[in-house]
Amino acid sequence: MIVLHRGLLVVAGLLGASGVAAAAASSHMVDSRNLSAIAAVFLSHGPALLAVGLFGRSRSFAFSGAILALGTLIFGADLALREFLSAPLFAGAAPIGGGLMILGWLGFALSGAGLAKLKK
């Protein structure tokens, strides 16, 4: 469990730094919708993962964080590759990443409501 929390903290830091970099780059590049989207997604999900890494006590909450982190990384990587290489990460990467992000957030809701319990 400690390894998962530390991993979430690492991903949170990387998302925060990358989100700020994407925001700066999007303000200097012409019509960069992908970089603006990366900035918005990373700067909103990074703090959520930071909170889970620091305060998430249950396995279901940590597992939801891992799903959110994976989805965010897939989504952001796909947008970045489209922006800089004009090629996707893989076919359907953005919707898969987006779907995982939605599942992660729903997992938080279920965990918070006490409906999702993973044995310790």
Rank of each mutant, 00 (worst) to 15 (best):
R82F: 03
D78N: 13
G99R: 00
L100Q: 05
E83G: 01
A91Y: 11
D78F: 02
L85W: 12
A91G: 12
S86M: 14
G76H: 02
G71L: 04
L73H: 02
A87W: 12
G97K: 01
A87N: 13
L79T: 04
F84E: 09
I102D: 11
F75Y: 13
T72D: 06
I96T: 13
D78G: 06
L103H: 04
G76F: 07
E83R: 00
L103Q: 07
G97E: 06
A80E: 11
F84Y: 15
G98T: 07
L81D: 06
P88H: 02
G92C: 06
L79Y: 06
E83Y: 00
R82M: 14
A77V: 13
M101Q: 12
D78T: 04
L79P: 05
A93C: 08
A91V: 14
I74P: 00
G76Q: 10
P88D: 08
F90E: 10
G92Y: 09
I102L: 14
F90I: 07
R82V: 12
G97F: 00
M101N: 07
A80K: 04
A94K: 10
G71A: 08
M101P: 06
G71E: 01
P88G: 05
M101S: 06
G98L: 03
G99T: 08
L103T: 11
I96P: 01
S86G: 12
A94F: 09
G76A: 15
A94S: 14
F90Y: 13
D78K: 02
M101K: 07
F75T: 06
R82E: 13
G99P: 01
A80V: 04
I74N: 01
G99C: 03
L85R: 14
P95A: 05
G71H: 00
G76C: 15
L103F: 12
G99S: 10
I102R: 08
M101I: 15
D78E: 09
A94H: 03
G97W: 00
L73V: 15
I74W: 02
A77G: 13
G76L: 08
L89R: 00
A91R: 14
E83K: 00
S86W: 10
A93Y: 05
L81N: 10
R82D: 12
G92I: 03
A94C: 10
L79E: 11
L103V: 14
G76E: 09
A87E: 15
L79S: 09
A94Q: 13
G92V: 07
A80R: 08
I96L: 15
T72C: 11
P88C: 11
A94I: 09
A87T: 15
A94L: 12
L85K: 15
G97N: 04
F75W: 08
E83C: 01
G76R: 06
P95Q: 04
P95V: 01
L89W: 01
L73I: 15
L85V: 14
L79N: 11
I96K: 01
G76P: 04
F90C: 07
L85Q: 14
F90D: 11
G97L: 05
L73G: 09
R82Y: 04
L79Q: 11
F84S: 08
A91D: 13
A93I: 05
L89T: 00
A87F: 14
P95T: 02
S86L: 13
F75I: 07
L89P: 00
A77D: 10
L85D: 12
A91C: 05
I96C: 11
L89Y: 02
A77R: 04
G92D: 08
E83P: 00
A80P: 00
D78H: 07
